[in-house]
Design a protein around this nucleic acid. Structure first.
Length: 647
RNA sequence: GCCGAUGUAGCUCAGGGGUAGAGCGCAUCCUUGGUAAGGAUGAGGUCACGGGUUCAAUUCCCGUCAUUGGCUCCA
């Protein structure tokens, strides 16, 4: 007999060889029907696998993340089975569960697979699901596995086998499909009640650009039909928030083929919004002791040879601009740091001057791969809310800490709650990708991790994500459809100060090297605005939105009064427009609502007589009448409240 | 950059080997109205661009450009 401990702390004595499914059956048949997997001593197992020693046991269903993953992992096998039956001879690489669903990397050989074939695959999957074929686990020796896949002619699985140790190899079979897999899997295919092939994409074998591309088939499945419907609706709603769609609808920005790929044009409303954000940050930075600087958009090629950027990125950048002078070359600036190093060098610095913080909304140009361009989130010309802090080694931690506070302050004001702080360190396997001494790298990596810890940030550590000159601390935020983007960033750099031979005179009257901190709380104006649009679905906070108020006269007779109201509001720095079209007020309201304008003021006979306005809040409806002055005060205090927060 | 998809009016989209259509928007006129769509009339398109096939191409084929889902990349 063995002891099974359940999550509630209760213990059951059962025969050795009992399965998680048996335990579930013992509790209730209904539960057993829903068990997809089981956590046995912290490891996720097939519910059918026999337990042979004392164990803690947690039964996993669709409501557990691990349960979902199990269903999706098993669904990947189901997809493979469907594909193999519809496209005999296809070969499979790997098919893991992902955040929403799963994929399988497939080599279709000479056969073609397009989005028109999705439905047939979905039907086949459901047909196979209905058979309720069990997933059968089999432990086999490496030699047997090699023999099996050699006979099948599946070089991809053979490649996988090379990396596996004898004694740890398992096969899973459901119906006619057998896969090399460590599992776990759900009991049988019947758990899948709804299946959807979402998309296909090319994916390099083993993620290496020099390898051939396989076809990655993305899918998702659910244990209930209506969950698929709900999921698709959710996706639809997410797409409605897409900044590319809203940016066009709301006249915020545009692109032009003639201007060029990835070069955004800010339209008047977008420019208004952006400059308000810039003013907001400028004010916060002024309080935090930053000084503004302005540097040119180009720099001599030598500048980037000194910085090391030319060697690292020169070939993949916008190519140098020639001048009439023989051999003279300039680069569009791809970053502001080298210019700021030269700002630092413009005069000798004393330790008494440090830290110095040079801030600039610096527009930079990077020749991003064409396939990478994406709305405003990844572009070729963008403006960083950049600053470089030059300080002594002793000041690094405090400066980094202050930068983090600044980022958190901005996120707080804009109500960004769902973010992850990524600590980006070197890839220990590829030291040649980085410049600078190990000693400096270690110092910088330690400092960044210590500050993150002291701040109690919710961090994840990523190896290999560091900049080539130093480690980073990145604030990652998701867009409407769940893709992660880096916004704010703080980077510690011991290398550029070396390369530019930056110095300050210490208290000891000898020369020392400062440390440089790169930082951008928004990251770039383009990406930040994109995420902001998706975050608020286009309903910008009152203080930011390009048009705060729309005045809607009941009829043409009140247009003059409406204009008067608009003048008064203008004097209070409130952005108001009059809708003087010959439309009914219902129509004007509808249009203003759809334009997401926070306040509508309806004015007619009684308002004109009393000098009042009827106030309507976007999304909420009528809030009653008040004097124009009282309304202006309401706006003023609402904005003050928003900007107060942690100030 | 790579694999796939897409490109028709300002926007969202339908159509299809015989040179185009809807809704919204826009313009003009009528209507002057009280909290989410009043009515009429009208203007708008080298069907992304270049080449090929054909008596005839917006439609079929090829190429380019752009957008897009991924992969790779991201100072």
């Amino acid at each position: 007999m063995i002891n099974i401990t359940l999550p509630d702390g209760s213990t059951r004595k059962v025969e050795s060889g009992t399965t998680a499914y048996d335990v579930a059956m013992d509790i209730s048949e209904g539960l057993a029907r829903n068990v997809l997997a089981a956590e046995v001593n912290g490891e996720v197992w097939d519910p059918q696998r026999e337990i042979r020693s004392d164990a803690s046991l947690k039964l996993l269903t669709w409501n557990d993340d691990a349960g979902k993953s199990t269903l999706w992992h098993s669904s990947a096998h189901l997809l493979a089975e469907a594909l193999e039956s519809l496209y005999p001879g296809v070969k499979f690489w790997v098919g893991p569960p992902i955040e929403h669903g799963f994929y399988y990397d497939v080599d279709f050989g000479d056969q073609t697979f397009t989005d028109k074939d999705f439905t047939a695959v979905e039907q086949k999957m459901l047909e196979l699901a209905k058979t309720k074929n069990p997933f059968i686990r089999k432990e086999i020796s490496k030699a047997e596995a090699i023999a099996y896949f050699t006979e099948k002619g599946d070089e991809y699985k053979l490649d996988l086998l090379e990396g596996l140790e004898d004694g740890t190899i398992t096969l899973y079979t459901q119906g006619n499909f057998t896969d090399l897999c460590r599992g776990p899997h759900m009991p049988h295919t019947g758990f899948v009640k709804a299946a959807k092939v979402m998309s296909i994409a090319g994916a390099y074998w083993k993620g290496d650009e020099s390898n051939k591309q396989l076809t990655r088939v993305y899918g998702i499945t659910f244990p209930k039909k209506q969950e698929l419907t709900a999921y698709l609706e959710l996706l639809e709603q997410a797409r409605a928030r897409d900044h590319r769609k809203l940016g066009k609808e709301m006249d915020l920005f545009a692109f032009s083929e003639k201007v060029g790929q990835g070069l955004p044009l800010w339209l008047p409303k977008g420019a208004e919004l952006r400059s308000r954000l810039e003013d907001f940050l400028k004010e916060a930075q002024r309080k935090a002791g930053y000084q503004g600087v302005i540097t040119p958009h180009i720099g001599n090629k030598e500048l980037y040879i000194t910085s090391g950027h030319y060697a690292k990125y020169g070939a993949d950048s916008f190519q140098p601009i020639q001048t009439p002078a023989e051999g003279e070359e300039y680069l569009l600036k791809p970053m502001n740091c080298p210019h700021h190093c030269e700002v630092y060098k413009a005069r000798p610095r004393s330790y008494r001057d440090l830290p110095v913080r040079f801030a600039e909304f610096g527009t930079v140009y990077r020749y991003e791969q064409s396939g990478e361009l994406h709305g405003l989130t990844r572009v070729r010309g963008f403006t960083q809310d950049d600053a470089h802090i030059f300080c002594t080694a002793d000041q690094v931690k405090e400066e980094v800490s202050n930068v983090i506070d600044l980022v958190l302050y901005i996120f707080d004001i804009l109500d960004f709650k769902d973010f992850v702080v990524q600590v980006s360190l070197r890839d220990p396997e590829n030291p040649e990708k980085y410049i600078g001494s190990d000693e400096n790298w270690e110092k910088a990596e330690r400092a960044i991790q210590e500050v993150a810890e002291e701040k109690g940030l919710n961090t994840i550590v990523e190896l290999g994500e560091a900049a080539f000159y130093g480690p980073k601390l990145d604030f990652m935020v998701r867009d409407a459809i769940g893709r992660k983007w880096q916004l704010g960033t703080v980077q510690i750099d011991y290398n550029l100060p070396e390369r530019f031979e930056l110095e300050y005179v210490g208290a000891d009257n000898s020369k020392h090297r400062p440390v440089m901190i790169h930082r951008a709380p928004f990251g770039s104006m383009e990406r930040f605005v994109a995420i902001l649009i998706e975050h608020c679905a286009g309903k910008f906070p009152l203080w930011l939105t390009p048009e705060q108020v729309k005045i809607l006269p009941i009829s043409d007779r009140f247009n003059e009064y409406a204009k008067g109201v608009s003048k008064v509001l203008e004097n209070h720095d409130i952005r108001a427009l009059v809708d003087d079209r010959s439309e009914k007020v219902g129509k004007k309201i509808r249009d203003a609502e759809l334009e997401k304008i926070p306040y509508m003021l309806i004015v007619g006979e009684s308002e004109a007589a009393e000098g009042t306005v009827s106030v309507r809040r976007q999304g909420e409806g009528d809030v009653g009448g008040m004097s124009v002055e009282a309304f202006a005060e309401r706006i003023r205090s609402e904005i003050a409240e928003m900007l107060k927060k942690k100030d």
